[in-house]
């Protein structure tokens, strides 16, 4: 039996749910607290329980549920690295806390700009010509941002390619089913949950340079 353990308002849970639909896994979603006895090994959420193994890093669990086609593997790995090292921590620290760190915010803005230049009306998916786990994890990370009007105006202004990509994925049945099965509040709250559930370390400014390679 495959079980997703999650707390509430955790955007990473969307990554797992949508991936399970695309990978055609029969999963059960169980809402727990971080201190729940079922999570003996770690208090990170969400966690995927498969055959006595607990996958507690969301991108890894999503990749397991919906593995890429082998020829896309290197590109998929690079985007997963990018999302876990840059996009996810920078969005969690920028939108999930009240502290203002200009460098981290600039990293987030550069990440969004990178995405905007990657997708377009003719390039509908980030890697290759079909949907992959990369589209799923990045869409999930941005979902509470673009669903909140204030945040959308502030961060996605003029990023029409990115916004079009987000809205186009939203229409797919797997994304709609996941959004129905697990509600995420638009706005800052899911990013606070992301920060506490992922336990991102208090990154020093030196970890994030303003300049990002084009």
């Amino acid at each position: 039996m495959v079980v997703i353990y999650s707390n509430i308002n955790n955007l990473s849970t969307l990554k797992l749910l949508i991936s399970s639909y695309f990978g055609k896994h029969d999963v059960t979603l169980e809402i727990v607290r971080c201190t729940d006895a079922k999570l003996l090994e770690t208090d990170r959420l969400p966690a995927l329980s498969v055959a006595d193994t607990l996958l507690f890093i969301p991108n890894t669990a999503a990749h397991y549920l919906f593995p890429p086609k082998s020829f896309d593997e290197k590109q998929v790995n690079e985007w997963l690295d990018w999302e876990s090292s840059l996009l996810s921590p920078s969005i969690a620290w920028t939108l999930g806390t009240s502290t203002k760190n200009v460098q981290i915010k600039n990293t987030l803005i550069t990440c969004l700009s990178t995405l905007d230049s990657t997708v377009s009306s003719t390039k509908k998916f980030i890697v290759g010509k079909e949907i992959s786990v990369v589209d799923i994890i990045i869409w999930s990370t941005l979902q509470p941002l673009y669903k909140n009007e204030n945040l959308m105006v502030e961060y996605l202004f003029k990023l029409n390619n990115l916004l079009g990509w987000l809205l186009q994925l939203e229409k797919l049945s797997q994304f709609q089913d996941a959004s129905k099965a697990y509600k995420i509040e638009p706005g800052n709250v899911p990013y606070q949950v992301l920060l506490s559930s992922s336990k991102y370390l208090n990154i020093s400014e030196t970890s994030f340079n303003v300049e990002v390679e084009k």
């Binding site: 193994t53 996958l55 507690f56 890093i57 890894t60 669990a61 997963l80 991102y200 370390l201 970890s207």
Partner: peptide, 18 residues
């Protein structure tokens, strides 16, 4: 999947544990 998990853990958490 577990190998991938630990590699990501190493770079996102262990390397940044300051």
């Amino acid at each position: 999947a577990e190998v991938r998990q630990w590699l990501e853990y190493c770079i996102v958490y262990t390397a940044r544990a300051d």
